[in-house]
Amino acid sequence: MDYKEYIRVIPDFPQPGISFKDITTLLQNGEMYKNAINELKKMVSALKIDVIAGPEARGFVVGAPLAYALGVGFAPIRKSGKLPYETIEVGYDLEYGKDRLAMHTDAIQKGQNVLIADDLLATGGTISTSVDLVQQLGGNVVGAAFLIELSALNGRAKLPGVEVFSLMTYED
């Protein structure tokens, strides 16, 4: 199935030269959204997964339904200050600044196998930070699953040893 037909590409957003891949058009089509999650499920089904972790916000719309489909738990990764319980945090660099991601200290149990899920793999900064958080909590990252991968940005290079699963790949 060509899921790219359901992705809206917006040129020069959020800045000139960027070709933004908008997944909201896929999410609006219930059948295609369901098919995409089911296809990701098939891609990762050979992994032993105890919990899926996903960074806000679009990691929630990929990770939570994937966790449901696999019958495993979901652990949200949020920006600093957004979680109500005790957290750990890791800072990371953005293109124009810095940010921090956080997880509850009890979100992952030591030794659990964790799949990280998000909508898009670009430069790998958010996902490598997510991997770091999971590992600090004692989790074993068994893979990372994405609807879209922007291969030209080489985000996989920031994920050594992590098996990457992508439903769609764009060169630009």
Rank of each mutant, 00 (worst) to 15 (best):
V62H: 02
A46I: 10
A36N: 08
K41T: 12
N38P: 04
L66S: 04
V62Q: 04
N35C: 08
G30R: 15
T25F: 07
K79Q: 03
K41V: 00
A64M: 15
K21C: 06
F60H: 09
K34R: 15
T24N: 12
P65F: 06
I49T: 04
Q28G: 13
L66V: 06
K34M: 12
Q28N: 13
A67H: 03
A46H: 15
L26N: 04
F74I: 09
E56H: 04
K48R: 06
K48V: 04
M43I: 00
R78C: 01
E56L: 12
L27Q: 12
N29K: 13
N38V: 01
N38T: 09
R78W: 03
G73A: 09
E39P: 03
E31Y: 01
K34D: 14
D22M: 10
L47W: 05
L26Q: 07
A75R: 06
I77R: 04
P76T: 11
P55E: 12
A36Q: 07
L40A: 05
D50L: 04
V44K: 01
F20L: 10
I52K: 00
A64H: 02
V62M: 07
K42D: 14
P76M: 11
Y68H: 13
G59R: 11
T24Y: 08
R58I: 13
L26A: 07
P55D: 12
N38C: 11
K42E: 15
G54A: 12
V44G: 01
L66H: 03
Q28I: 02
K21G: 01
K21I: 04
S45Q: 13
S45A: 14
L40Y: 04
F74H: 02
K48F: 01
Y68Q: 11
K34V: 08
K34Y: 13
A75I: 09
L27T: 10
F74P: 05
K48Q: 08
A64T: 11
A69G: 08
A53V: 05
L40M: 13
F60T: 11
R58N: 13
D22L: 11
G71V: 06
I23S: 08
E39L: 09
Y68E: 06
R78T: 01
L70W: 00
A57L: 12
